[in-house]
Design a protein around this nucleic acid. Structure first.
Length: 773
DNA sequence: GAAGAAGGATTTTTT
DNA sequence: ATCCTTCTTC
């Protein structure tokens, strides 16, 4: 399909090509030069994958392929941005469409909204909006949920959507009570979304996949429009994404997938490893290229990673190698407890920075679960080491931002009930629960959106005149705002915050938090102005909203600031650091306890460890502790089974400060900094208090000569029976009065001699049977 | 509508 | 144990 190059100087072209292929190894070069037909690039960590992909795009362009015929899909905005930037470098001015799957989906849906039953304008609900919709639906339809939480039901729906099962296709399995709840809720939820002309994140893929399936002409048109499709992180695609890609690669099967089965860590979100494992069966005559040379890590690090991942069955074998130095041995350190672990890491980093050996941004600390970050944060603060933590949503998730944007959503899509509910009484307009209930009933009866229902508030029975008038006022406000919706986004938002009274309310408030809220909405205005300038009238409110929904402002991990990075293993994918600390390499944490039952899940945990290890360029420290405080309990920690799958004999093993014996005082021997250190942002705190409570804890722990759970195995929820005498470390002796639930939910009501009656969730409490063992 | 009490959950979280 | 959400009450 490669068109012949446009008339140009042959010699010039040749030099350009040489430039493109410069410094590529054979496998990389082969991938870059591949033009037509399916291509699978199995890219090991640090193998120059992005480089290959961008160079391949540049090569296609140099062969005369139009930029508009190339589509590159990624999972994250960050990856898309990076790819766009590098393509721009290689082929300036060429407008290749590089997008996340979801943004691509949103764009296609804008073109074809009618085909899937959406209105001209639609809203994209984020997780919390969609959760709210779900709850409203369950409430309105009075669907019995059998005590399943909205979150559980939502994830049931989500996983159905990921598997491309639509609401009317969903079949409950008799073995799963949850699925029968989902079977009731899913159709109602979906109907409500459509009535509000809204989609959730999963819908962006589901609708598009359906669209391509059900409309052959549309599919064919898009297939030919996007002749060359590239996908990044193919191992993370779910069923819906698979179908979309397939549909775009039938007539022009030039799909180039890059990925690494060994780095698939999103199985729990519906990613289907089979997509990449079966690529060759799915796409006949696919060319498979392995990028096996690692340019990132030392030999020692790569060897450990490779040995570990070799224990997985479901994979495609790669022979990873590197020409880098052997490097330092990996450090495997056992600490007494997590404070010792955190303090040691903080000190190592501090020392390296102070000696000028390294800078803060050279370091990263990874953990399996967010809950483990706290002791590390504390230690870094105490050692005055600057750090940044990569965490979820920020800016666009803030209440005030969501409030203001909800007005915009409602203006853009008058059917948007979530936006209506969010705005109607914020700032307060005396429209209370009763009014909204009556309005909701009315709207529900006629199948009308809330805003429409509010228009005829005078007709709603059981609604006081006063209330009806207030609703009408609100409708008038929205109408007024809507009249100016066509202008620059900054002006739209500007009139929203002044006309709605939102700004005034914040200005009048003397709550300190409201002052910062005010600052945030001013910042939103700035953001909108930048948007207007960037697109110069080419894009309006709808496009702006789409960006707020799909561009996670928290791609704000700054790689250029000089700080230590703290993140979960999941967040670490795709990044690299000279020095990596991986903490809590312990059984039950890594691998996580919930995955120990299932081989596939265990393999995913192993991949997670693999990802973490392969982020390290020069130095890697794995650490574990003997005693770990977790969810309020202190437990003896067991080294991770993964350690036995690595060449630990060649690692530099160390037991913290060198001694095997744990000095019980050691952990309370805080570095002097911590005692003096005062958070400048913190409100004036009652200073001596923390010390006192620390002292109490210490004393209590030391007096408690009875062995800790370390030697007293924690009682299982099944060990308890009615009338049994039990002991609780805090409440003392008691007798079980009643029991309920099972498994993790099993709870007991205990009558304590001193503390009275309490309900206790057995799996989460230190309750022990007394007497018979 | 804010403050306080009670209840529930507690792995990871690209969009 | 602790945090977060939801419900209750004034």
């Amino acid at each position: 399909m490669a068109c012949s190059p446009p008339a140009a100087d042959d010699h010039q072209l040749q030099t350009a090509l040489d430039k493109l292929l410069e410094n590529l190894n054979d496998a990389q070069r082969e991938a870059v030069l591949h033009v037509d037909g399916p291509l699978l690039i199995l890219a090991g960590p640090g193998s120059g994958k992005t480089r290959v992909v961008t160079h391949r795009i540049a090569h296609l362009l140099s062969r005369g392929v139009y930029a508009s015929q190339i589509l590159a899909l990624t999972f994250t905005n960050k990856a898309a941005q990076e790819m766009r930037r590098r393509v721009e470098n290689l082929a300036p001015g060429q407008r290749v469409w590089v997008s996340t799957f979801h943004r691509f989906g949103a764009r296609l849906l804008r073109e074809h909204a009618d085909l899937v039953g959406l209105g001209q304008s639609f809203t994209i609900y984020d997780t919390s909006d969609s959760r709210q919709t779900l709850k409203r639906v369950i409430e309105a339809e009075k669907i019995p949920t059998m005590h399943y939480t909205a979150d559980r039901i939502a994830s049931g729906i989500s996983s159905a959507k990921n598997k491309l099962i639509t609401a009317d296709e969903y079949q409950p399995r008799s073995s799963s009570p949850l699925s029968s709840v989902v079977a009731r809720v899913y159709p109602a939820y979906q109907q409500r979304l459509l009535a509000s002309s809204a989609v959730d994140f999963d819908d962006l893929l589901l609708h598009v996949a359906k669209l391509l399936k059900d409309n052959p002409e549309v599919r064919a048109e898009l297939d030919s429009r996007f002749r060359y499709v590239l996908v990044d992180e193919y191992q993370d695609t779910n069923r819906a994404q698979y179908v979309i890609l397939r549909a775009l690669s039938l007539d022009y099967p030039n799909l180039a997938a890059t990925g690494d089965p060994d780095q698939s860590i999103y199985g729990w979100r519906g990613a289907d490893l089979n997509n990449i494992l079966d690529f060759e069966q799915d796409y006949g005559q696919a060319k498979v290229i392995r990028l096996e040379q690692n340019y990132r890590s030392t030999k020692a690090i790569l060897r450990a990673a490779d040995t570990l991942i070799g224990h997985n069955q479901r994979r495609k074998k790669k022979a990873l190698f590197t020409e880098n130095d052997e490097g330092q041995p990996i450090r495997l350190v056992t600490y007494a407890d997590q404070d010792a672990e955190a303090n040691s890491i903080a000190r190592q980093i501090q020392d390296a920075i102070e000696s000028g050996e390294r800078k803060a941004s050279d370091f990263a600390i990874f953990y399996r679960i967010n809950a483990l970050s706290r002791s590390i944060e504390r230690a870094l603060r105490a050692h005055r080491v600057p750090f940044q933590m990569v965490r979820g949503q920020e800016f666009y998730q803030r209440k005030e931002i969501k409030d203001v944007l909800a007005y915009c959503q409602l203006i853009n899509n008058p059917k948007d009930d979530v936006a209506f509910e969010r705005t109607v009484n914020s700032p307060t307009r005396g429209i209370g629960k009763k009014t909204l209930e009556a309005l909701g009933d009315h709207a529900y009866r006629y199948g009308a959106p809330l805003l429409e229902a509010a228009r005829e508030s005078g007709l709603i029975e059981g609604l006081a005149k006063r209330s009806a008038a207030k609703l009408s006022q609100f409708v008038a406000l929205i109408d007024k705002l809507t009249a100016h919706a066509g202008g620059p986004v900054e002006e739209v938002i500007g009139s929203v915050i002044s006309e709605s009274g939102y700004r005034q309310r914040l200005v009048d408030s003397d709550d300190e938090e409201d002052a910062s809220r005010l600052a945030n909405i001013e910042e939103l205005l700035t953001d909108a102005r930048q948007f207007d300038e960037e697109f110069e009238g080419e894009a309006g409110l709808e496009e702006y909203l789409e960006r707020t929904w799909l561009v996670n402002e928290t791609d704000n991990w700054e790689d250029d600031s000089d700080k230590v990075t703290l993140m979960t293993l999941h967040a670490a994918k795709g990044l690299e650091f000279p020095v990596v600390f991986l903490v809590a390499v312990e059984d039950g944490i890594l691998p996580h306890e919930r995955s120990s039952m299932d081989t596939q899940q265990l393999e995913e945990e192993r991949r997670l460890a693999f990802v973490g290890i392969t982020r390290a360029e020069a130095e890697l420290q794995l650490s574990l502790v003997r005693l770990r405080d977790f969810r309020g309990q202190r437990r003896m920690a067991v080294p991770s089974s993964f350690l036995m799958e690595m060449p630990t004999h060649e690692m530099q093993s160390d037991h913290g400060s060198g001694s095997l014996e744990v000095d019980p005082w050691e952990q309370f021997d805080l570095p002097p900094e911590e005692e003096v250190w005062v958070d400048p942002n913190a409100a004036p705190a009652p200073e001596p208090e923390p010390r006192i409570s620390a002292a109490i804890t210490t004393a209590a722990e030391l007096t408690d000569q009875t062995p800790r759970p370390a030697t007293t195995p924690k009682a299982s929820p099944d060990d308890f029976s009615l009338d049994m005498t039990v002991r609780h470390p805090e409440y003392g002796l008691g007798k079980i009065k009643s029991l309920s639930g099972s498994g993790k939910r099993r709870a007991a009501t205990v009558e304590f001699a001193l503390a009275g009656e309490r309900r206790i969730v057995l799996a989460h409490s230190p309750l022990q049977p007394v007497g018979n063992r």
